[in-house]
Amino acid sequence: MHLHKYEKIWLGFGVFALIVFLSVVGVSAFHQGHTPSGGHMTIDPENVRGTAPFDEPGVHQREDGSYEVVIIAKAFGYEPSEIQVPVGEEVTFTVTSEDVVHSFSIVETNVNMMVVPGQVNHKTHTFSEEGSYLIVCNEYCGSGHHFMSTEIEVIGQ
């Protein structure tokens, strides 16, 4: 198969760029731990409130001093409806759904999690600035999808 010289240069450049891109993504993911949200725990979607940790939705401090926020998403809101976390601390969001697919997405941060019934999703985030952050559902979940939002207060220590 004949390849024109310029085409070789062009493809060589493209493949090189590809390798650089993927290396950056890979190192960032597996060396620095920047992976998107995920989780391996499954849950009975019909018995969410009877299953730990969703029997106690809310903010919990763990033994190592970090925080876990346990959230149940449902059409069309989140439980608990009021969330307060401290600034500068590691916060892990643990979410699942009681009904259909939702999302838990904190605007102006990289917390953007799919909430899938039957699955538990996790994402760790450290807020660097105090203030009120908007949380929206960005996966269509029914007629009230656009009303599904809440806020999270990040407070000083």
Binding site: L18, F21, L22, V25, G26, A29, F30, T35, P36, S37, G38, G39, H40, M41, T42, S103, N112, M113, M114, V116, Q119, V120, N121, H122
Partner: peptide
Amino acid sequence: TEPGIASFWKFLQTVLTF
């Protein structure tokens, strides 16, 4: 960004996507 799929498989398919 969803649970139930290990990071490794997400990354492998990212590579194939590219």
